[in-house]
């Protein structure tokens, strides 16, 4: 048993707090009938996940999680909700009677599978620090090891840009 007032004990406490934030945010996101509140829960969940990444010595991923998921994705969702339906909250469509048990069953199965995977796998010991995380390292990684992924992502982004341009153009009259 680790004492609470050591570095490990405090780190464990912080870890538990981060997990609580993540799970709590997720529960709000799923459970709230009001859409903006659900998105706020989602944002809290993302912040918790970012905390987990930081806890795992990956500050870069943590910061990216904040920047992209909280700063871009959640804001876009709230924005879309606000433009579509600024007024009354809408009832989520009626659920069928089997929805809850089946959902719980699938969730439990997934949780069990992931947990077993995590426990049974022989994980290689993580290096204390993979690299210095400098801009040069990221650049090298992007155009050597992950060159293919990088190209594919840029292709997806290009398509997204063209798609949004087409959509925006269609909304405009012939002027």
């Amino acid at each position: 048993m680790i004492s609470l007032f050591t570095a490990e004990g405090l780190a464990g406490l912080v870890f538990l707090f981060i997990v609580a934030v993540t799970v709590g945010g997720a529960l709000i996101a799923v459970g709230s009938p009001r859409l903006p509140r659900a998105v706020a829960g989602l944002a809290i969940c993302f912040i918790g996940v970012a905390g987990l990444y930081y806890f795992l010595h990956s500050p870069f991923v943590a910061v990216m999680e904040m920047l992209i998921y909280v700063g871009a994705v959640c804001v876009t969702i709230v924005f879309a909700i606000m433009l579509a339906d600024p007024g009354d909250e809408q009832k989520v469509g009626r659920r069928s009677a089997v929805a809850a048990p089946v959902g719980f069953g699938v969730g439990a199965l997934l949780f069990w599978g992931m947990a077993m995977l995590g426990i049974k796998t022989m994980w290689p010991a993580a290096a204390a620090k993979v690299n210095t995380g400098s801009v040069t390292d990221i650049g090298h990684a992007l155009i050597t090891n992950y060159g293919m992924v990088f190209e594919l992502i840029s292709l997806v982004l290009l398509l997204a840009i063209i798609g949004s341009l087409v959509l925006a153009r269609a909304g405009r009259g012939k002027s």
Binding site: V63, M66, L67, G71, C74
Partner: peptide, 15 residues
Amino acid sequence: IGLLMIFAFASVNVM
């Protein structure tokens, strides 16, 4: 990655 961190937190402001 301080510069990135500042922008990450600044993006929460909009929220």
